[in-house]
Simulated scan of single mutants.
Amino acid sequence: MLEYSVRARRDDAHGSTAFCKDASLVLDTGLAGRLDAFNPAELFLASVAACMLKGLERVAPLLSFSYSGVEIKLHGIRQDAPPKMLRIDYEIVIDTDEPDRRIALMHENIRKYGTISNTVAGALELIGTIRRAGV
């Protein structure tokens, strides 16, 4: 089993800071919002994207999958009462010359082996596609 730890501290009425290992991240926790930090919903979406990107990094060598870049676009839908995320739509855009069937295989592996994406998919709709860049 793996375990993870993060510590967060309120800095002032406009924001907070999270700490992990040697890293820190400014958080948008103020009621007015701020443009220079992720709010909790954006941080949640970013964690899904990071999981998918890490999955790609992990699976690519195993599949001998060649690519030069990747971008993941996510869109979350939140309900107000009670407040919760209902759905996340995503698009993975990958710069590769691999055949379409191998791109689909990569998508399957990203979805199958992602800790965060599997957790999220068990709690809400996680719907997405993968496509070749430039198409």
Rank of each mutant, 00 (worst) to 15 (best):
Arg101Ala: 15
Gly33Gln: 00
Tyr4Ser: 15
His75Cys: 13
Ala23Asp: 07
Pro83Glu: 04
Gly15Thr: 10
Gly33Cys: 02
Glu57Asn: 09
Ile77Gln: 12
Asp100Phe: 11
Arg78Phe: 10
Ile127Pro: 01
Met106Gly: 04
Met52Leu: 11
Val120Thr: 12
Arg78Lys: 11
Val70Gln: 01
Thr29Gln: 10
Leu31Gln: 15
Leu62Asn: 03
Asp89Trp: 00
Asn118Met: 09
Asp22Glu: 05
Arg34Gln: 04
Val6Asp: 01
Leu31Cys: 14
Leu45Met: 08
Cys51Gln: 09
Asn109Ser: 12
Thr29Trp: 09
Ala104Cys: 00
Phe44Ser: 14
Pro82Tyr: 06
Glu91Ala: 15
Gly134Gln: 00
Ser16Val: 09
Ser5Cys: 01
Ser66Leu: 09
Leu126Gln: 11
Leu56Ile: 11
Cys51Ala: 13
Arg131Glu: 08
Ser24Leu: 03
Ile88Gln: 02
Ile77Cys: 11
Val70Leu: 00
Met106Ala: 05
Asp11Tyr: 13
Ile110Thr: 10
Val6Trp: 00
Ser24Ala: 08
Ser47Trp: 04
Ser64Asn: 15
Glu57Ser: 08
Ala123Lys: 14
Gly33Asn: 06
Phe44Ala: 14
Asp28Pro: 02
Ala104Gly: 04
Ala18Gln: 08
Ala133Thr: 02
Glu108Gln: 14
Pro61Arg: 03
Asp89Arg: 02
Arg111Trp: 02
Arg131Gln: 09
Ile103Met: 07
Ala32Asn: 06
Leu31Phe: 13
Ala32Gln: 08
Ile72Tyr: 01
Asp97Leu: 11
Leu74Tyr: 02
Pro83Asn: 07
Ala37Pro: 12
Arg101Trp: 07
Thr17Gly: 09
Phe44Met: 14
Ala46Glu: 01
Val26Phe: 05
Met106Tyr: 04
Arg7Trp: 01
Val59Arg: 02
Ala60Glu: 04
Ile94His: 02
Val135Ala: 15
Val135Ser: 15
Phe38Cys: 12
Cys51His: 05
Leu56Gln: 03
Ser24Pro: 04
Ala18Leu: 08
His75Ser: 13
Gly76Glu: 07
Gly33Lys: 01
Ser24Gly: 03
Tyr113Val: 12
Leu31Ser: 15
Val135His: 13
Asn118Arg: 10
Glu3Val: 07
Ala104Lys: 04
Asp28Leu: 00
Asp12Thr: 13
Met106Arg: 00
Ala81His: 11
Ser64Cys: 13
Ser64Ile: 10
Val120Ser: 11
Ser68His: 09
Ile103Lys: 02
Leu56Pro: 03
Arg34Met: 05
Glu42Lys: 05
Ser5His: 01
Leu53Ser: 05
Ala13Leu: 10
Val26Cys: 10
Met1Phe: 06
Val59Ala: 13
Glu3Cys: 05
Ile110Asn: 09
Gly134Ala: 06
Ile110His: 07
Lys21Tyr: 01
Asp28Met: 00
Pro83Trp: 04
Leu27Arg: 01
Leu53Asp: 02
Ala121Gln: 14
Arg9Tyr: 11
Glu57His: 03
Arg10Met: 14
Leu63Lys: 11
Ile77Gly: 13
Leu2Glu: 10
Gly33Thr: 03
Arg87Asn: 06
Asp36Met: 07
Tyr67Ala: 05
Ala41Trp: 07
Gly114Tyr: 00
Gly114Lys: 07
Ile92Glu: 05
Val59His: 06
Pro83Asp: 09
Val120Cys: 10
Leu27Phe: 06
